[in-house]
Design a protein around this nucleic acid. Structure first.
Lengths: 125, 125
DNA sequence: TCATTATATAACATGTCTGTTATGCAAGCC
DNA sequence: GGCTTGCATAACAGACATGTTATATAATGA
């Protein structure tokens, strides 16, 4: 039995690769923050940044690939909408380190239960 | 005033780039998980993975650059030790989306206070 | 001193970002 | 129909990431 197995270390999760990878870019984080205030079209998202429209379109594709946004259809527009549920996966992974911040972190466990319930509801929409 | 300013969107944080970037790699996440069980030398970290020792050394450098580990000195060894405090930054960033999971997420605010206090204590060591 | 162990670094190949400009295409408007 | 708007995609460039092997360095130990 390998060390990793003995220590009950979870297998590599391609979902987490995508999620953390998406969050690693400052433009994408800013886009998510913007979307937390409501859906936005590509054109609206381009405006505050000094990058081209195709660049934003590709950032959106990365975010969509990570399951962090959804795209809609509104005539010619393809509004992006936050899909925060998958951010829960990131938080969940981070909770394995809660012991390093003190036992109060256990509250996060309860929190995750709530998040997962919300997740299910989101799926149903 | 730009849209981003009006919406009180935080400026790009190069620290978050490094932290999320470090977490985007499955090998690095596995290393952090392993280190959550205690410090480990490079040789010990190489064993469970099918990558070369230099590759692990570079992953450790990335993690160190993100402030997620510290290196020690033990004769010829340079043991890596988890420095989980900076993971709090990641969690903190994620909390801006707590409204999407329900108000129970507010507990995370309290949590962060604890984490930050721990942070200060860690700095003092 | 010489060998061994532990780790770092250099040099290199390859693949993946991230951005650009140019262009295609669909939907609405005159 | 022809123009405008909104967005996607293709093609390209440059930087960065990740892995390799070979080698350097530092500490221990015979």
């Amino acid at each position: 039995m390998s060390v990793m197995q003995a220590m009950n270390i979870p297998p590599a999760d391609p979902g987490l690769d995508a999620i953390f990878g998406a969050l690693a870019d400052p433009t994408r984080r800013a886009i998510l923050t913007r979307l937390a205030h409501g859906p936005a079209t590509v054109t609206e998202l381009v405006a505050p940044f000094e990058i081209s429209q195709p660049a934003v379109s590709r950032h959106l594709k990365v975010l969509e690939g990570a399951g962090l946004i959804e795209r809609g259809i509104d005539e010619q527009r393809r509004p992006a909408k936050l899909r925060a549920a998958n951010l829960a996966q990131a938080v969940e992974w981070l909770t394995q380190f809660r012991a390093f911040w003190g036992s109060s972190f256990d509250q996060l466990d309860d929190l995750l239960k709530v998040m997962k319930q919300q997740d299910v509801r989101t799926e149903d929409e």
